[in-house]
Amino acid sequence: MMGAVASLFRREIRLSLRVGGGAMMGAVFFLIVVTIMPFAVGPDLNLLGRIGPAILWTGALLATLIGLDRLFQADHEDGSLDLLTMTETPLVVIVAVKAVAHWVTTGLPLVIVAPLLGLMLNVEPGALSAVAATLLVGTPALTFLGAIGAALTVALRRGGLLVPVMVLPLTVPVLIFGVGATDAAITGPVPMSTPLLILAGLTLLSLVLAPIAAAAALRLALE
């Protein structure tokens, strides 16, 4: 089974990195969201520095959502999803592997560019690493929660806008503890480890539970 998992992982990465795979779309969207913010709140560097971590987290949250429709849709259309369900590997594992690969190609770039965008927002150096660290811990949870939405809407023709509507309310805890941990690192009063550990707990929980729900939804769509 490990061989199958590894080859599926390699396939997913290769598919999303090639032309039309859309791996970089999330990072570009992230850049655009962050660019738009100063136009809305004004170029006051002190204000931007203060709300910078929140802007980065909101931008990353939205950027995670836009690539989600690709997670299962393409495989559903060309029939490879049917083939994948017929293999010996449990569908739960397949969903988890696809979600992890999706995070590596769409979530990880966000974590890498976040400190650079933070510099533009006058976020102080100490906070930059905190933002990157919390995004690294928290974005997998966003991808996994999003995988549920992507699986539920895979057979729908009008699924595009539905995924954010369903998924965004569920991401509120991740956002709260992600920004909370960043703020704790900068200003306190709680030590950063408290919210960060809760954030890690949320990620692990979604890592276990979301593939189960998403696999159940995919089975329904394939009936």
Partner: peptide, 28 residues
């Protein structure tokens, strides 16, 4: 029927987590 049931249960699991996180966020 069943896709909505899955979403409802995922949401139900989340309700206490949301409640807890909003309380934490609010006290902060």
């Amino acid at each position: 029927a069943r896709p909505v049931a899955i979403l409802a249960l995922v949401g139900f699991v989340n309700v206490p987590i949301i409640k807890f996180s909003v309380d934490w966020w609010n006290t902060l």
